[in-house]
Design a protein around this nucleic acid. Structure first.
Lengths: 216, 216
DNA sequence: ACCTGAACACCGTTCAAGT
DNA sequence: ACCTGAACACCGTTCAAGT
């Protein structure tokens, strides 16, 4: 019966703040997650959170930690590096799609997340399993990271309307100067998930070819 | 001697505003380009620009148009789709690295740039030259677009310090739980340009293989 | 016809005051 | 020990007033 943290009924905590942040983003998108809105969500003054976190970036980092570690939950390796790497990357994409702002904030202020880097650890491990040397593993990891995070951030902010708007913009260009873009316009941006999978499989194809060539 | 636009010595114009925007970003980065700063740069009241543009997004779109069309200047096709596509993509990367905010703003509000889509037109044309069918050309274009824009936006905001911070974060993780990430930490983020080129060549390798396989 | 400047509705954040 | 609320230094933007 120690319960030192029990006898003061603390209304706020880092965990509650992260809960509120994730709830707001899932309900109304990343732009709705202002500190004033978090205060309302927590039934507290907007500035109360500063008792528990240094600044907003710390909330985003804590949220990123939770989202990333949840995305890694239940991963089961099959033994095939290609299958497993594809799984890991699809999980990372899901995390970025759901919480682009929290995850992107890590880029500008790298921080040491307690559980958040399991997917990255898995990806690096699987790349090393291929037998490629560590210098190539490093750039291959950066490639997959850039493609995954980059494509996901574009897709996270895209809507049915913005995709349609792009098709219209391209279709409306002067066909003399833009014969290919106008011809292709209506085929573009039909299915972001499928386009990502196509690109990812291209990258995995090429990596597999590099592995065979290095082994042969 | 018509000169209808001459007899009123207009201090501001869309062109002058875009000039000022590009100058500020090149001097002090995208975050410095506030409307108040643009006003100071133009020797005018911060709100004067609203006489010439609807909102800030319109300034960003006009700047994107200029940056993109300049990036396409001087392109000379060699006749090899792979060589030319690589050139086109590297030019697009340069534009995104220099003005990430202006170019990224296009994503959320697609607009019909007068000259800005020449690189996109070239990329689509080169992909069609491979002989792949138009549905595959569409997803291949989206793949290259996502990789190029995504990697460039990450790289645009990265600094020597943030890269070093990431290496330190990964190196400091508990090695029992993160054996691969800690082992690889110091090899990561050494040269963004080289890592991008590696990834781009992987994608081009895979596309070339798809072309051969479709032809054979 | 064009520019100014006060004002508005937002941000994240600080700090003295409350309980 | 924790929370409040006024206040500050910023944003982009609107609109009546000036020349």
């Amino acid at each position: 019966m120690v319960a030192t943290s029990e006898h003061t009924p603390q209304r706020l905590s880092r965990e509650a703040i992260v809960d509120a942040y994730l709830r707001v983003v899932e309900a109304d998108g990343p732009d709705a997650a202002t500190l004033r809105r978090l205060g309302a969500e927590l039934g507290a003054d907007p500035t109360s959170v500063y008792r528990h976190v240094r600044d907003k970036d710390e909330i985003l980092a804590a949220a990123a930690d939770r989202v990333l570690s949840e995305a890694a939950e239940g991963f089961e390796p099959t033994g095939s590096w290609r299958t497993d790497l594809r799984d890991v990357i699809m999980r990372a994409r899901g995390a970025y799609l759901a919480h682009p702002q929290a995850l992107m904030a890590l880029q500008s202020s790298p921080s040491s997340l307690p559980d958040g880097y399991r997917l990255a650890e898995l990806a690096v491990g699987l790349l090393r399993d291929t037998g490629l040397d560590d210098d190539e593993v490093a750039v291959a990891f950066e490639t997959l990271e850039g493609f995954t995070i980059g494509a996901a951030s574009l897709d996270a902010y895209a809507t049915r309307e913005s995709e349609e708007a792009w098709r219209r913009v391209f279709a409306a260009l002067p066909p003399r100067e833009y014969p290919n873009l106008t011809a292709l316009a209506l085929r573009l941006y039909q299915d972001a998930e499928q386009a990502f999978a196509y690109g990812l499989d291209l990258l995995l194809d090429a990596l597999e070819a590099r592995v065979k060539e290095a082994a042969g």
